[in-house]
């Protein structure tokens, strides 16, 4: 403080040079601090080993018409449903333009009977019911999320309730007739 008092009554030229130095130093310090924060924040993002847990292979030969199984991929449930003719019919007879998140059923599957999607409600992340026979399936015969009441149809598209988007489709490929690789 004593120094500040000493330097206060300087003439215009000197004080503006001093101001310039102070602003410059402060700006540099601010940028430097911001850069130093980066590794800290970045360390919170998924680590290399977490990212490496990338793919799962599933044998689907035992899943009969109308049945479904749930497998784990990246710590999340993946729904694999062997859809019936009626399921597919119901999904394809919808007027896409009326959907909240418009998508045709054809865009959501690679082979019509097999609907493969991430079983995490796009509202706030609960797991919708509808995989087991006795589960409530919602107003559209697909899945129902008990948390805040989102209804999904037989193509896993959002039809009613607070969720904004359809159930997401993970990257997957059929390796042969009975094996599918997710991720």
């Amino acid at each position: 403080m004593a120094e500040a008092e000493n330097t206060a009554p300087t003439t215009g030229g000197e004080s503006s040079r001093r101001d310039f130095l102070i602003y410059g130093t402060s700006a540099l310090a601010a940028v430097g601090t911001a850069l130093a924060v980066w590794p800290f924040i970045s360390s919170m993002n998924p680590a290399a080993d977490t990212l490496a847990l990338a793919s799962t292979e599933v044998d689907i030969s035992a899943v009969e018409d109308g049945q479904a199984i749930t497998v784990v991929w990246r710590g999340k449930p993946v729904f694999i449903r062997h859809r019936t003719e009626e399921n597919i019919e119901a999904a394809r007879s919808v007027d896409v333009a009326e959907l909240r998140d418009p998508q045709t059923d054809e865009d959501r599957v690679k082979e019509a009977p097999w609907l493969i999607m991430i079983g995490v409600c796009t509202h706030l992340g609960c797991i919708p019911l509808g995989q087991k026979d006795g589960d409530p399936k919602g107003d559209f015969g697909g899945w129902f999320c008990p948390c805040h009441g989102s209804h999904y149809d037989t193509s896993g598209r959002i039809r009613k309730g607070p969720a904004p988007l359809n159930l997401p489709i993970p990257p997957y490929a059929f390796l042969d007739d009975t094996t599918v690789k997710i991720g």
Binding site: M44, N45, P46, T50, R74, G75, K76, L124, G125
Partner: peptide
């Protein structure tokens, strides 16, 4: 449910949630 609240924010929402989780869930 609570961490997913942040996914509601447009554009950055999903990245914020991943950052909070340090993973995919």
């Amino acid at each position: 449910v609570i961490t997913n609240l942040f996914s509601a924010f447009p554009v950055v929402g999903e990245s914020i949630v991943t950052l909070l989780w340090g993973g995919f869930s």
